[in-house]
Design a protein around this nucleic acid. Structure first.
Length: 428
DNA sequence: CTATAACTCTCAA
DNA sequence: CTAACGTTGAGAGTTATAG
């Protein structure tokens, strides 16, 4: 039988920020979402102050000032790099690993039972602390859902010890007693809506969910929740996914730093988003068959005039050429744009993605020579941007000043991925 | 009517 | 100074539409 471990970094983004600035050691730190919008990560000190996850920053800014909370804009370059280092270390503990998110991985621990899972988890924890200075918690169980739950117990110190919780050494009785103390909403896959519906049925705790009739749940909810319950009972229904499947759609969207009224700025934004998405598309060696574009006014200000148009256009022939995709996206944008509104956000999605070479050719294909020249051009574009940084070479349509870009007022240096940032580490 | 497409809802980090 | 509320992706289920 497979035994899973779920390793999750504690307060990941906030911890990364603290790592490179020792003066922050015992201070409350938050990291904000894009556009400095909402709180998406909180250090232990902030959680202790009762600051909620996901709260809009501007709503608590005064309070935060009183408490001396230090806020950072999201620095994804830094977090991604630290994340890769964590994965590298974890990979030495199991040949089978699923990188589930930027701060979480599932490991297949089959074959390591001799060591003792608890001890093995403690070793992972220690290694990551020693080599990176990051704290992680480890949950261990016979299904992914149980490993997730064990991790929760480790974090909340409900069971296990020293940040490691191993369900495999607990008796069924001990587990059920533990489950009585945990709300059903903590379970992986049970979100706000399903929690509320379960509650209406009298299912409040993990224990009650564990005991519920799977068939009934399937009828009242879905096959997904049925799987979840079976997993809670120790029947593995969700496999480790070691290879990330290619994306079926690629989207890029951003809120603007301030309201945008005119078309030219929206065109720059849409062009920039297409460029980003097309890069991803080519990275998985695929072509897109359709492009979706939307723009929207601020939905959080219902008193302002609202307009949220969107439109999808099928391409005559699937493409991964930034120039082609941009032309279609801009054509759509001009169709849906109406003057007089203050736009707050724009976004694009590439759809009907197919592997290159699998595509349906149009009747009016360019000559082979022309097509291959276009491919070479895009490959060169990607190579240059790979070498000199994203956006080093781009279409003029993206604009130069980009006055619409998101706010990022409290960005820390890229300590590990940029020479300028590395110098800042040395300076500390 | 059926098969498929399109859309909606929910969840996750 | 003021106003200010994230992004990306998947899967299941439901509804609309084409033939």
């Amino acid at each position: 039988m497979t035994i899973f471990a779920l390793v999750d970094c504690n307060n990941f983004y906030a911890s990364c920020e603290k790592l490179f600035n020792p003066t922050l050691k015992d201070r409350p730190v938050v990291v904000l979402s894009n556009n400095d919008g909402c709180v998406v990560a909180r250090s232990a000190e902030v959680k202790a102050l009762g600051i909620a996850m996901g709260v809009p920053w501007f709503k608590i800014q005064q309070e935060a000032k009183r408490y001396g909370i230090v806020a950072f804009s999201s620095n994804y370059a830094l977090y991604a790099d630290m994340s890769n280092r964590v994965v590298e270390i974890l990979s030495t503990f199991s040949p089978n690993i699923e990188v589930y998110s930027i701060d979480e991985s599932f490991l297949d621990l089959s074959g390591f039972e001799r060591v003792g899972y608890q001890a093995y988890g403690a070793e992972m924890r220690q290694r990551i602390a020693d080599w990176l200075g990051l704290a992680v918690c480890v949950g261990i169980g016979p299904t992914k859902t149980l490993a997730k739950l064990a991790n929760h117990c480790a974090k909340k110190r409900l069971a296990g010890a020293e940040g490691v919780c191993d369900f495999t050494t607990m008796t069924p009785g001990e587990l059920l007693t533990l489950f009585e103390r945990i709300e059903a909403g903590e379970i992986w896959g049970v979100g706000r809506k399903i929690s509320a519906k379960l509650e209406a049925m009298g299912i409040l705790t993990v224990r009650q969910l564990h005991d519920a009739d799977a068939e009934t749940l399937r009828k009242r909810f879905s096959v997904v929740l049925e799987r979840t319950v079976r997993e809670l009972r120790g029947v593995s229904c969700i496999d480790l996914e070691e290879v990330v499947p290619d994306n079926q759609q690629i989207m890029s969207s951003r809120s603007f730093g301030s309201l945008v009224y005119d078309l030219p700025k929206l065109e720059e934004a849409v062009s920039s988003y297409i460029a980003r998405a097309a890069e991803k598309l080519r990275a998985q060696d695929a072509l897109a068959g359709a492009v979706h574009v939307y723009i929207r006014t601020n939905i959080f200000k219902p008193e302002a005039p609202q307009y949220q148009p969107a439109m999808t256009v099928p391409l005559p022939e699937a493409s991964a050429d930034t120039r082609v995709l941009t032309r279609w996206a801009l054509r759509v944008l001009r169709r849906i744009y109406r003057p007089g509104f203050g736009y707050h956000k724009a976004g694009i999605t590439l759809l009907e993605i197919v592997p290159r070479g699998n595509q349906q050719l149009s009747l009016f294909v360019p000559t082979m020579v022309e097509a291959s020249r276009n491919d070479t051009l895009m490959a060169t574009l990607d190579a240059i941007n790979g070498r000199y940084g994203r956006g080093a070479l781009r279409l003029a349509a993206e604009g130069v000043t980009k006055t619409w870009q998101m706010r990022r007022g409290n960005l820390s240096p890229q300590y590990t991925t940029d020479w300028e940032g590395v110098a800042r580490v040395a300076a500390i």
